[in-house]
Amino acid sequence: MIVSRRKLIGMGAGAAGGLLLSGCDRLNDSPAVRDSLASAEGLTMRSQRLLMGDALAREFSEAEMSPSFRVNGSSRVEDSAYRRLLGSGFAGWTLQVGGLVHRPLALSLDALKAMPQRTQITRHDCVEGWSAIGKWQGPQLGAVLGTAGLLPNARYVVFHCADVLDGKPYYESIDLIDAFHAQTILAWRMNDAPLSEGHGAPVRLRVERQLGYKHAKFVMRIEVTQSLAALYGGKGGHWEDYRGYQWYAGI
């Protein structure tokens, strides 16, 4: 059989393509490969933090805001206690602050509103690729944590949420660098109105230098911990545990 060089190469490329495709998925499923790929996350986090220090995320003017801000993730909370609170405008609700703190707190919505407020018009970047610009207002998380007083072994701040996604309670976590960043606030107000249910009433975390899934909605309880290993899936958040997203979402 005479096979031209060009045909041979074509056949070779086809076979290589097929191998590549199944090979790619096999590599994608290999724990060793996934571990080495995931090791880039730490490198990315350290490099980005070195570059940005405590720089602020861009703040926009009112004219630059999105005409409409997309609701994403849970848009409704089914929990009956939550629904009663929502009906009453969160009158009897308190935000629990506990864990590795000197003074555990129970802060009402009025108490959060009475604290010094920060208002910021920022860009919200979803991991999927879209962005929306909105206006957020609330006390700085650093001030709340300062009131509670952190114990020396405190490393992470965990946000326990009222919503359940895919049958699992939503939670998220950040470390103290982001927790004490000036723009990290517990927003109860968005676009000059109290936070709607879809956007995370009564309180949503804003952690402006990370992607949207870190911005926990429906925050009910804040827990300061030394490690993330003992919580739920151990990776520090719902998307990290069940969907394989990076814990550090700076890119």
């Binding site: 980005q48 570059l51 720089a55 995320a57 970047d125």
Partner: peptide, 9 residues
């Protein structure tokens, strides 16, 4: 596209 880099640069 990185919110962190946008803060830095």
């Amino acid at each position: 596209m990185s919110p962190a880099i946008d803060a830095a640069w």
